[in-house]
């Protein structure tokens, strides 16, 4: 099965990720968005870089992954693909893996930006583990967005944007969780991005709002939830695409 998952991943990377605009957009969009909200606030780089990492990873891992299914439905390539001896699980895992690889690679950019600005990584192991776990978590979320059985890419884009934008404002990126009011903390705890941002702050600044093991446990739990739900919903949606 793993070879088949990899075949799907390779196809995705070749067709959808290794495109100039996709890569450049993946780097620049979070950067510009981030600058738009932080410029002029005179915040220290050590605070900003974890936020930039969180935004970049979140946006890249959820950028392409939701549109592959509707796109392939529309281009009529999906029918041939699923009449091959693969299960829905293989297909979804392949899509997630491609998004995961893309997310992990692109997240090297904000880390490099941080290093260039003199923000060192205190706990590289924690950072790396956090990036890996979060990339998987957000990629699964990306696949969850594509479960409505439509062939309209724009619908799925709208749906995912509708969810993604609020999420970045409640996840401790621009306002640290410790400065939020009680209800804000409650809302933030519902976002998987909060826990990655927290881990990134821990890895770079040395302190975090939640204990590290809570962050990891939360990311794991969200990953499992998104993955299982995406598998189940895709299983149901796939035959409705024809």
């Amino acid at each position: 099965m793993s070879a088949k998952v990899w075949a799907i991943t390779k196809k995705d990377i070749q067709l959808y990720y290794l495109k100039g605009p996709v890569v450049i957009f993946g780097v620049l969009f979070p950067l510009f968005l981030f600058l738009a909200f932080t410029i002029g606030r005179n915040l220290p780089a050590a605070f900003l870089i974890p936020g930039l990492m969180a935004m970049t990873l979140f946006f890249t891992a959820t950028s392409v992954s939701p549109v592959i299914m509707p796109w392939e439905t529309q281009m009529r390539t999906l029918e041939r693909l699923i009449s091959c001896p693969i299960s829905v699980r293989t297909l979804i895992l392949g899509d997630i893996l491609a998004s995961f690889i893309f997310g992990v690679c692109i997240s090297a950019v904000p880390v490099a930006v941080g290093v260039a600005l003199g923000v060192g990584v205190r706990s590289p192991i924690i950072l790396l583990t956090a990036i890996i776990l979060a990339a998987f978590c957000f990629s699964s979320l990306g696949l969850l967005f594509s479960t409505p059985p439509t062939s309209l890419v724009s619908n799925i884009m709208m749906l995912s944007t509708f969810v993604k934008f609020p999420v970045i404002f409640i996840s401790g990126i621009f306002i640290p969780v410790e400065q939020m009011p009680g209800w804000g903390v409650a809302v933030a705890s519902l976002s998987p991005l909060t826990y990655f941002t927290d881990l990134a702050r821990y890895a770079l600044q040395g302190y975090a709002y939640y204990p590290v093991h809570v962050d990891f446990a939360a990311l794991l739990a969200f990953s499992a939830f998104f993955l299982l739900l995406a598998l189940k919903l895709h299983e149901r949606a796939l035959p409705k695409r024809f």
């Binding site: 070879a3 390779k10 196809k11 070749q14 067709l15 009529r76 001896p85 693969i86």
Partner: peptide
């Protein structure tokens, strides 16, 4: 009504299918 992948080569399409059949 299904299509092969237009952005892959003929060879690429065949190799993709071959690997999906193991």
């Amino acid at each position: 009504t299904a299509n092969a992948y237009g952005d892959l080569t003929a060879w690429g399409n065949l190799m993709l299918i071959a690997s999906l059949y193991g």
